[in-house]
Amino acid sequence: MQKQFPVEQRFAVLMKAAQAGDTSAYVQLLEEITPRLRQAIRRQRMFLDPSDIEDLVQDVLLSLHAVRATYDPERPFMPWLFAIMKNRMADSARRQIRVSAHELQVDDLAVTFSDNPENIDEEAYRDPEALRLAIDRLPQAQRQAIDMLKLRELSLKEASAVSGMSIGALKVSVHRAMATLRKVLKDG
């Protein structure tokens, strides 16, 4: 029966069923559109890592889910979906620009010296007990991110696989955790 419909109409029918609470139709729809989203994002953002593309795909799926009431069953499905996708891609690019504007890329320094002024600030943080207590007081997600990325020195991919958190969420958690730790340790 479904083969009679072109893809576009089948998606519209599945989405209409999903809005009515048919969870199997919804899962089928999400499974069918995911490769299309992945392909479309990869085509438009060829410079991104596969993990970043996957983050974007997940963002689009989450957005679709959150605003699925805005789909009008009388209107075509694909323009609705691609409008969300393009908007999320633009949103992600803006966020990336904002984040990179506040980030400072520094080359790894092979050697530092004890009289190097940079090390003097570092000394203020070298109270292992205070650091341990500060880490213990972090929210669970941030504590987990610090533990995996800074203490156990896992890569983002490994930490994501272990924790189930997305790479984006890990980056945010560790960034917030570092900011909190810096503030807590500085305030004493």
Binding site: A18, Q19, A20, G21, D22, T23, S24, Y26, V27, L30, E31, T34, E54, V57, Q58, L61, L62, H65, R68, A69, T70, Y71, D72, P73, G164, M165, S166
Partner: peptide, 20 residues
């Protein structure tokens, strides 16, 4: 979280919604 897991979770949450 991998994408297939997310899809399953979103599907499980797919309660009826009234189109705007």
């Amino acid at each position: 979280m991998d994408t297939n897991t997310l899809i399953r979770q979103l599907g499980a949450e797919g309660e009826p919604v009234r189109p705007l």
